[in-house]
Every structure is written in structure tokens, then in C-alpha cells.
Simulated scan of single mutants.
Amino acid sequence: MAKNKKGSDGRYRYRIYLGKADDGSKKFKSFYGSTEREARAAAEAYRTAIGKGMDPQQAEATLGTLYDNLIASKKAKGISQKSIDRLATNKAHWGELVDVPASELRASDFQQVLNTLAGWHDGKPPLSHFTLTNLRGSAKAAYDLAIPEIVMYNPLIKTIAPAGAASESRNPITEAQQRWIRETPHTAQRAAMLLLYSGLRRSEATALTWADIDLDDATITVSKGYDFRAKKVKIPKTPAGVRVVSIPKVLVDYLRTQQDGCLYVLHNPKGRQMTEQGWKRLWESYMRDLNVKYGYDGQQNKNRPGGLPMLIDTFTPHQLRHTFCTLMYFAGVDVMTARDQMGHKDISVTLGIYTALDKKFKKKKINRLDTYLKRSCANSG
């Protein structure tokens, strides 16, 4: 250990000899403190860490290196490409921290980035609490994997995921919105009708072919999905995803009018499967048309300069899937059948939807009782 030395910035420095580099030069690592004792303590802690398994050759390994190691480990375990892509996205979210030695990063560094991403920044919308939690968890996992060879401490332990943006709404759409879908011709109407009255996931609907639909039997066989990132068809992640969905007459009658000779039920103008960007453009166009028709009574041009403010409550493709589950609840479909229809791996997911609806519906019934009793008491008086 080298002799302490006070720098021009007023800090004390201690150095540890790490051996020789490939070119024969000597390698040192410096430790700083506002006092001699603080600098010495940091150096001693590092030397103790080496004795416990830290690799001095990786002393300058960055946060990016830690993420690369985590991704390599996950690949070896055979996780999906979607999960690998998510880790790569998480890595990029940390911005400049990626190039900083992991051992030099502190909880405050990570918390500052998390707080920034929780609000509007650089023209980008805030991330949701779920995404921020996933981001924090991935960094924590990267550090856990690096202990004790690269780092001795995990700074993510002392961080929290901010609230962030509200999660995407999963509320069912209204009866009026359901009517909009049935009565408004649009390129997206086929997709909307399919999702609303079959409960298919967007990836399942994208991979659906006409051969998967039996209109005489009123069923849809779900055996595959579409990986938007990899741009290829994939098998469901769980056995529950493979299922036969019974569809109502309103969808059967509609689909009979839609067969166009293309392999895929939903497709782009060239007859190919819909891409992520294709879905986005399609849905934005759909919401704009619905806004003109039902928000402005058809009296405005959706393409007017500056755009047309939204007067309607827009909805997402996932809300249509959730609405299908709600429709089954009100139709009296039992929860086990609903689970099979939705393709939920865990029945608790279906139960959660049914329970929430049950509480809401029963409360309305009690309110009706209150109204009845109030009227009854008034009449008897």
C-alpha cells in the first residue's frame, strides 16, 4: 500500500498495487477520502475484498459490463429473446452510468436516474411504476451476480422505484364504445371485433389464420402467437395459452363477411402479418376516426392542422381483451370456463377480474336496495 498523499482538491489518496499490466507497467488503484483515516479505510476494505474473492483485474468493470454478464448468464439458462431484449433496454435506460465503473456507483446515482425516468424528460413520457420496478430489479440482479468478484456491495438495495406514470388502463370499455366498434367501418374494425368478442391477446390475433377459425362450430383454435421483436411466430409460453375459444354469434356473423382470401385474419395492405409499428399506426387512425364521428358528430376534419383534440375516451387493444372477460362475467360464465377462454395460466388472474366486478356489481345492487327502501318508507309514511 502506497504512502498517503494529499491532493490539490484537499482529499487524501491511498494506492494499492495490483500487479503488472500486459505491457509490463505497474498497475495501481487509488482510494480517496476527506481524511487520512477515510482513505485508508477504503483501501483496507478493498484489500479485504480481494481476500474474499474479488478479482483485481475487473476492478474497473462498468455497469455495462455487469449487465453484459447478467445477459450472458440468462442466455445460458435459456430465457426467451423477449426477456433478453428487455434486459438490453434496461441497460440503455441507465444512460451515462453504463460507462462508469460499477464499484464507484452509489445508491444516489441510481435513484437520481430512476427519479428522472419517472417524469417527463428530454421530450420522452414518464415510465410506469411497473417498468421502473423492473429496471431497478435488473440492475440489482446484475450487481448480485457480480458479488464478490467485481463488487462487494449492492447499491440498489437502498433505492426505491418511484410511482412513475399510471399503468395502461385495463378497465373494460363502455357499452357505447362497444357499439362504436360494431357500427363504425374502418380498417381496424376487424381487429377490434376480434379482440372484443374472442378475448385474444394482440400477439395471438396477429398470428391467427383463417384456418384457425371454424365459423360453423363458432370456435377459434389458439396455438401460436407473434413475437413482435423477433418478427416471427412463436408457441405460447404456457400450456394454458393453447386453447379453443368459443365465440359469440355477433363475431361469427361479422367474420363471415370478412374473408378476403388472405392467409392471415389480420394483415397489412401487402397481406403480411402486422408489425408493432403497423398496429400503432392502425390504432391511432382508428381513434382519430372514432373521435371525428362520436366526439364531433362528423363535423370536423381529423387531419386539420395541429390535430383534432380528443373528445372521446380512447381505448387500447388490451382493454378489449379485458372487456371480453367482463362480458363473460355478466353473462354468467363460470370462472373456470372464463379462465380457459382467456388462456390464463393462473386462475387467480381470472378470479381477480371476477372478484373486482363482483364487488362493484354487488355494491350497485345494494344501492338499488337503498333506493327501494327509501321509496317504500316514503309511501308508508
Rank of each mutant, 00 (worst) to 15 (best):
R272N: 12
P239F: 02
T257W: 13
S285G: 11
D289Q: 13
L263R: 10
C262P: 00
V244P: 00
D260M: 01
V252Y: 04
S285N: 15
V244C: 00
R256A: 08
V252H: 04
T275G: 05
Y286T: 03
Q273C: 07
V292L: 02
L290C: 02
S285W: 04
D289R: 13
V242S: 09
H267P: 09
W279F: 14
R281V: 12
K249M: 10
R281W: 11
V250A: 11
D260E: 03
H267W: 14
M274W: 11
R243Y: 02
L282T: 07
V245R: 12
K270R: 15
N268W: 07
K237Y: 08
S246M: 08
I247H: 11
G271K: 11
K270G: 01
L263T: 14
G261T: 03
L282C: 05
M287S: 01
Q273P: 09
L290V: 09
W279G: 00
K280A: 06
L266M: 15
Y254V: 03
D253P: 04
L282E: 06
T275Q: 04
R256V: 09
Y264M: 00
Q258T: 10
N268H: 08
K270E: 12
R243I: 02
G271V: 14
M287T: 05
L290I: 08
W283A: 05
L266D: 05
R272K: 14
L282D: 02
S285R: 15
Q259N: 09
L251A: 12
V265K: 09
L290Q: 02
P239L: 02
C262S: 09
V250W: 08
D260G: 02
Y264S: 00
L266T: 11
Y286H: 12
E284I: 11
A240F: 08
T238Q: 00
V245W: 06
K237I: 08
K249R: 10
L266A: 08
S285F: 01
S246C: 05
A240Q: 05
L263K: 12
A240T: 09
R288A: 15
Q258F: 13
C262L: 07
G278M: 06
S246E: 09
E284W: 03
E276M: 07
R288T: 05
G278I: 08
M287L: 14
G278Y: 03
V242W: 08
V250Q: 14
Q258A: 13
E276W: 08
D253N: 14
G278H: 05
G271I: 12
G241F: 07
Q273N: 08
Q277K: 09
Y286D: 01
T257Q: 13
G271C: 13
V252I: 14
